[in-house]
Simulated assay, not measured.
Amino acid sequence: MDTDPDRSAVDCVGALVYDEQRRLLLIQRGHAPDEGSWSLPGGRVEPGESDPEAVVREVAEETGITIEVGDLVGTVERHGPNGTLYLIRDYEAERTGGTLKPGDDARDARFVNRDEFDALPKATLLASTLAQWNALPG
């Protein structure tokens, strides 16, 4: 873990949401970092917000669906512009409703199977991280 006191750390969350065929919900990022690449839905934790509240809000904003947040799957660190360090906690989540449509800073949102996942341009280290967590789509 980077402990440089001059480095700005940003608390973030993400969601691993699967459908009945174990396809994984991904969004195509509309902004930096990794603009144009595919990633898990998620984003910054707002002041006073719990991780589960942030996950629910971010998934709704980016995909239009509602979720129930489950267990923490894992934590990753990603370096961003200007020395920013993103501390990302990814949670299991189950879809409970809503209509899937891209919103907020997402260009697109969809459930993908393993072949589709492998073919997409993905955010840095997404595939290897999901593989480590045994969380790749079916």
Rank of each mutant, 00 (worst) to 15 (best):
M1H: 06
D2N: 15
D2I: 14
T3Y: 11
D4T: 05
D4A: 05
P5T: 04
S8V: 12
V10A: 12
V10G: 01
C12H: 04
V13Q: 07
G14N: 09
A15Q: 05
L16Q: 03
Y18C: 10
Y18T: 04
Y18V: 11
D19N: 15
E20Q: 15
Q21W: 09
R23V: 11
L26A: 15
I27Q: 12
I27S: 09
R29G: 04
G30W: 09
G30D: 13
H31S: 14
H31W: 01
P33I: 10
P33R: 06
D34I: 05
E35M: 14
E35G: 08
E35Y: 10
E35D: 12
G36S: 06
S37R: 14
S37D: 00
W38K: 13
P41I: 14
P41L: 04
G43N: 11
V45E: 06
E46H: 07
P47Q: 06
S50E: 01
P52W: 13
E53M: 07
A54F: 07
V55R: 13
E58T: 02
V59M: 08
E61C: 02
T63K: 06
E68H: 10
E68Q: 15
E68V: 09
V69L: 09
D71W: 01
L72H: 08
L72N: 05
V73N: 07
R78C: 02
H79R: 14
H79N: 01
G80Q: 11
G83W: 10
T84V: 15
L85H: 02
Y86R: 06
Y86C: 05
L87H: 12
L87Y: 05
L87G: 03
I88M: 09
R89Y: 13
R89N: 13
E92F: 15
E92P: 03
E92C: 14
E92I: 00
E94W: 03
R95G: 05
R95F: 11
R95L: 12
T96V: 14
G97R: 04
T99P: 05
P102I: 02
P102N: 13
G103V: 07
D104P: 01
D105F: 05
D105C: 01
A106S: 11
A106D: 04
R110I: 04
F111H: 11
F111W: 08
V112S: 02
N113W: 01
R114H: 01
D115C: 11
E116W: 06
E116I: 03
F117S: 07
L120D: 04
P121Y: 00
A123T: 12
T124Q: 13
T124W: 13
L125Q: 12
A127C: 04
S128K: 09
T129G: 01
W133P: 10
W133N: 05
N134M: 03
N134H: 02
A135H: 03
L136T: 06
P137D: 07
G138C: 04
